[in-house]
Amino acid sequence: MLPASLDEAVEALAATPGAVPVAGATDLMEAVNAGRLRPAALIGLGRITELRGWRYEDGGTAVLGAGLTHARMDRPDFAALIPALADAARTAGPPQVRNVGTLGGNVATAAPAGDTLPVLAALEATATLARAGSTREVPVSHLLTGLDPLRPGELLTWVRVPLLNAPQVFLKATGRSGPARATASVALVLDPARRAVRCAVGAVAPVPLRPLEAETWVAGCIDWDARGEDGATVIDPAAAAAFGEYVAGACVPEVLPDGTNEGLAQGAARVRRTVSVLARRALGRALK
């Protein structure tokens, strides 16, 4: 099925239980080809052009179409708007994947290593879910954790992201130079209006994790009014390092080796270390 408009799509979805909406298909077709998924029907969203762009709302919010591709999000105009999302889109995979893979697909697949997910979590983005005749608004994190999941017949149409006009960073560790799945990732955004730092850690758990206490603590360490030599907000380097440890400690539980779980304990220690370095570097870059 190839609906030409959003209305047609939600009608088709309502009319065909078991149908799966498909956009870039980079995750979906891999599952189909591997025989893990046999959808009763596919609803192609490629012709719904309105979902492939974005619009502004109330001056402070960007409403992003679910069909926005990673390649589009990486372009300079978008990167100026939501830099962390552009960073995540840029590193999401090889060009072939970024050219077709979409924001909505990333959210709907909800893979633990989905690169845009920690950014959306840090931005406290919300998703618009449409069904025939109605829509509802759900925080992306509720959608991901299953607190408020996508219901049958619902289609993810828009993602609402606040425009913060402040530095944002997304960093991911992969262990290689070529495109790869994250072993850990950190999204960090500054919200100068609220004097807040928001951070999310991806790929270490099934969903992005928010180290709320570390966020509050580090926001208190930042001298929001002071400006350094090159006009940056200032933080003590020791505080940045402590923030890294704090984030890692909050997001990666320590596994104490008891003789039987040595591999697990070592693995956890490695991930903690990586998250700590990423969080420290992310804060450093945001405050540069």
Binding site: D87, R90, T91, A173, T174, R176, S177, G178, V277, R281
Partner: peptide
Amino acid sequence: WLLPGGPGGAGDPAA
């Protein structure tokens, strides 16, 4: 200069 971790990666010249 392509840092370890690739373009847009987490590489930090200081490290």
